[in-house]
Structures are given as structure tokens and as C-alpha cells.
Nucleic acid binder design. Sequence first.
DNA 1: ATGGACACTGTAGTCGCTACAGGGTCAAGG
DNA 2: CCTTGACCCTGTAGCGACTACAGTGTCCAT
Lengths: 137, 137
Amino acid sequence: MGTKSILTIGTLAKATGTNIETIRWYEKVGLLEAPDRTPGNYRAYTAAHLSRLSFIRRARDLGFSLDQIRTLLGIAEQQDQSCEAIDAIARGHLVDVNQKIAALQALGRELDSVIGQCRHGRVAECRIIEALAPTAK
Amino acid sequence: MGTKSILTIGTLAKATGTNIETIRWYEKVGLLEAPDRTPGNYRAYTAAHLSRLSFIRRARDLGFSLDQIRTLLGIAEQQDQSCEAIDAIARGHLVDVNQKIAALQALGRELDSVIGQCRHGRVAECRIIEALAPTAK
DNA sequence: ATGGACACTGTAGTCGCTACAGGGTCAAGG
DNA sequence: CCTTGACCCTGTAGCGACTACAGTGTCCAT
């Protein structure tokens, strides 16, 4: 029962759907703790690494930046503090996401109207080009 | 009347709302033709540069990549060809934009539900952290 | 002559990876 | 025992689209 089962980087990669290079990169930038090494210098990950990496990937999927994740992880370690800060980060991120959606929707509408003007003629009279070059009459 | 009025890079930058460094960078990557130089080695832009840069910036605002813009500019120069290709690029880009919107909306919904679970207690029982770390019960 | 605004080149940094190149390690099969 | 092939290691360079210097030169008004 004291036996720690060890994971290679490849196993960890498959288990979390992460690229091997990405895992090494998370280590390099201090997101994922550097694991012990085997005698052959292979990284030997533990279950703790697996759950931490899962956390990171899930947060990435939700669009958090690595910096935000670093902060979240830092807070998550101080189990007895209030989780206001976590809530604030998540809410702030949601605001960002909603802003991005609004911007993209505006852009989509504009693109749509530009495309709607194309009469499929020659380039010289293409309305798309005209729409893109407002100063060049 | 044969006098060509010349624009410095700073004037061009202000006129198009572009960073000076960005203009030099567009030149470096072949999007904006390198202008003649003054005796003091300053870039001397013409009205043609202004309208081309306006085109680039407008297309960037609409979310086209520099590669797409390069293609658009290349087509725009061949005035007597059909504008099918331009239409195709614009339509393809619209598809991308709509996909991005859908992805962000899904993400926003998920974030929303994660945030909704926060009971503002201590980190140890924070539902946001739990939601992010699905394997670490 | 001098000050300040503007311009020049070149390099490094951003974010979040991805893609090598050139090696070392390990387990299974012959 | 040896080879094959899958896996792992380090280190570096590249992506897109810029941004931010550092160190130097130019221009114009006073």
C-alpha cells in the first residue's frame, strides 16, 4: 500500500490529452512541478501531477490564461482561505468572454454585409474590395 | 500640380491609427511596399501607401489574417479578373468567425455554471476549484 | 548652437505552444 | 547478446502579429 505508481510523460500525456512537449513546457514555465527522475533520467510523475495537469487543462479549455491558472493554483493551495479571489478571477474571465463574443458578432454582421454586396463581376468593380478600402475611391 | 505630397511614417501612423512599429513591420513582411527615402533616410510615403495601409487595417479590423490580406491585395491588383476568389475568402472567414462565436458561447455557459456554484466559503470547499479539477475528488 | 521631436536599425519579448535535430534508454524478440 | 523500435531526453527555432526597447541619426525652431 505504500507503493507509489509512477507515470511516464507519455502516459500522462495520453491520460490528459496533452502533448508531451506541452507538459515539458508547463514544467519550464513553472505551472507543473518538476517530477523526480528515474535512474535513466526519465520524468516520473505521480497521481498528484496527474490531477494538477488535469486542472490546468480543464482551465485552459475554459479559456483561462496560464497566468490566471497560476494564480488559481496558488489560491487553491491555501485551503483555508476565502474563495472570493477565485470567484473574482472567474467572473472577470466571463466578462472577457462576453466582450469577445460581442466583438465577433459585430464583426460577423459587418462581414455579412460586405459579402452580400458582391455581384460576382470583375475585381475592378468588386464591392468587397471597395468596402475594405474606404479611402481609395 | 505635379507635386507629390509626401508623408512621414508618423503622419501615416496617425492617419491610419497604426503604430509606427507596425508599419515598419508590414514593410518587413512584404505587405506594404517599401517607400522611397528622403536624403536623411526617412521613409517617404505617398497617397498610394496611405490607401493600401487603410485597406490592410480595415481588413485586420474585420479579422482577416495577414496571409489572407496578402492574397486579397494580390487579387485586387488584377482588376480585370473575376472576384470569385475574394468572395470565397470572405465567406470562409465568416464561417471561421461564426465557429469562434459558437465556441465562446459554449464556454461562457460553462463558466457561468461554474461561477454559479460558488458559495463564497473557504477554498477547501470551493465548487469552482472542484469543477476545474474533475479527477481530484 | 542647442533642444526636442521625430526618425532610423536591430534585437528581444509577448502568449501558448509546436516542431524539429540529435542524441540516450528500455523492453521484447531472434 | 544483439538489434529493433518505441519511448524519452535537451536544446533551439518557429508560429502570428505585433510591441518595446536601446542606441543612434535627422530636422527644425529658437
